[in-house]
Structures are given as C-alpha cells and as structure tokens.
C-alpha cells in the first residue's frame, strides 16, 4: 500500500465508501451498506433524523471510526491499512467540525484555531496571522485570548468551524456546523464553507435539516441505512 500523499486534484475520488458499515453503539443504530464516491470539489449534504447515522458516516470519513465492514478510501488511500503516522498525515488533509466541538480547554481561542496549522508544521508567524484572520472573519477577533469555556455555544461552534478550515483542508466534514448559531452567523459560516468548496475542497455536511443549504448531492439516512442518493441544485 503506497504511503505517499496524492494531490486530490489528480484523484478521481477524494472519498469513497464501498459497502461500508459502522458498528452499533450504545443506544445508536449502526450504519450499513453505504456506497459513496465523492470527487474533488463535490458537496454532499447528509440528512436524516437524530440517530439515523449521520455522525457515524462523518466519523468513518473523518477516520475517527473504523468501519466494521466494507471499505473506506480517503484521498486514494485505505487509511486502515496505513501506519498510525500515515493515518495522521491523511487526517491533516481533512477539516472536521465535530458535533461536540472538541475544543481544547487548555488552549486559547487563537491557539485552538491555529492548532491544525501547528500540527501541519506551519511557522508560528504564519499560523498566528492566519488564525487571527480566520477569527476576524468568524466574528471572534475580540475573543482571541479567551478560553473556549468562556464562549457561548454560538461562539464555540464558530471557533470549531474556524479550526476545521484553518489548514485549508482538501476534505471538510462538518457535523451540524451551524446547529447552535444564530441566523446571521449561520449564513456567514455556510458561505465560508461553500466558498471553500467552490475552491476545490470536498464538502460533506451533516444536518437534521434537509433544507439547511442547497446542495448538489444529498444523501438521506434512515435508521442507519442510506436511501438512494438524490441530486439537487448547485451550491448557493
């Protein structure tokens, strides 16, 4: 298995699921029979009721979950056949917005936003500048020195999105990215995500709301099973 990092532009698929399943967890239905191919620049909205398996699907794509059956390919590689270091390199090419946000309480807002860039080995002056720009864009410029626990839910979610897009990832996986936000902040964040998608990033967004955003591709999950994929309008 090659361990190199192909450029997503040269790949037919950035994300591929083949008969993929995720195990059941306490009180949550598992996921079965997901077949999915996403090319660079694709935008997929995954929707369904609570417990339908949306977070499981994003967990499989984001390599936070190991499939119990079938195969997942990310950027042309089977991550579960790579070494831990190889998987880590693959994760650095993805931006994840977790439903539980997973902000690090010991780090300031600016440090949380800069973390993916630090992990990727960016120089301090670069990641500090980029993080400050991002936080300004997200309306968090004035809270850069605060800690995540000092932010309200809306601000925490904006910070989580800022962190996810900070390293200019090739794949963005966003689980209910605007669930806690007010309408204005939500519009602003969705605009940013769609702009990054238009610039070539593959975007997978999960939401209970099927009308959250116009998406060219939609996948509805019902009790852990995908309904046939529908193709909708292009992104706003």
């Amino acid at each position: 298995m090659p361990n190199s990092q192909p450029q997503s532009q040269d790949l037919a698929f950035t994300l591929r699921f083949a008969g993929t399943a995720a195990p059941k967890r306490a009180g949550v239905t598992g996921l079965e029979g997901v077949d999915l191919d996403l090319a660079p620049g694709d935008f997929l909205l995954v929707h369904g009721d609570a417990g339908a398996g949306k977070s499981l699907l994003l967990g499989l794509a984001g390599l936070t979950l190991r499939p119990s059956a079938g195969r997942v390919e990310v950027l042309g590689l089977n991550p579960w056949r790579l070494s831990a270091a190889g998987r880590a390199r693959l994760r650095r090419r993805m931006g994840l917005v977790f439903q539980d946000m997973d902000l690090i309480g010991d780090l300031t807002v600016a440090e949380n936003a800069a973390l993916p860039m630090r992990i990727a080995g960016a120089r301090p002056e670069v990641y500090r500048r980029d993080a400050a720009e991002l936080l300004d864009w997200m309306g968090l410029g004035g809270r850069a020195g605060a800690y995540p626990q000092d932010l309200d839910h809306d601000e925490q979610q904006r910070l989580a999105v800022a962190r996810a897009v900070a390293g200019r990832p090739e794949i963005i996986l966003a689980d209910e990215p605007v669930g806690w936000m007010g309408p204005e902040a939500a519009r602003r964040v969705l605009r940013l995500l769609l702009q990054l998608n238009r610039q070539g990033a593959t975007l997978v967004m999960a939401s209970r709301n099927p009308d959250l955003v116009p998406a060219p591709r939609r996948l509805e999950l019902v009790r852990g099973r995908p309904l046939p994929e529908s193709h909708g309008e292009a992104g706003a």
Binding site: L63, A88, L90, R91, L103, G105, D106, P116, I119
Partner: peptide, 18 residues
C-alpha cells in the same frame, strides 16, 4: 488529565509521538 485534548489532537492529525 490531558485525554480530551489528546483525542482532539489525534483527530486533527497530530502524530502519536507529538
């Protein structure tokens, strides 16, 4: 003590060594 932060770092692609 650092478990939550470590989990997040690993999810973001930090190496085990780091």
């Amino acid at each position: 003590r650092r478990e939550a932060g470590l989990r997040t770092r690993l999810r973001l692609g930090a190496s085990q060594l780091s």
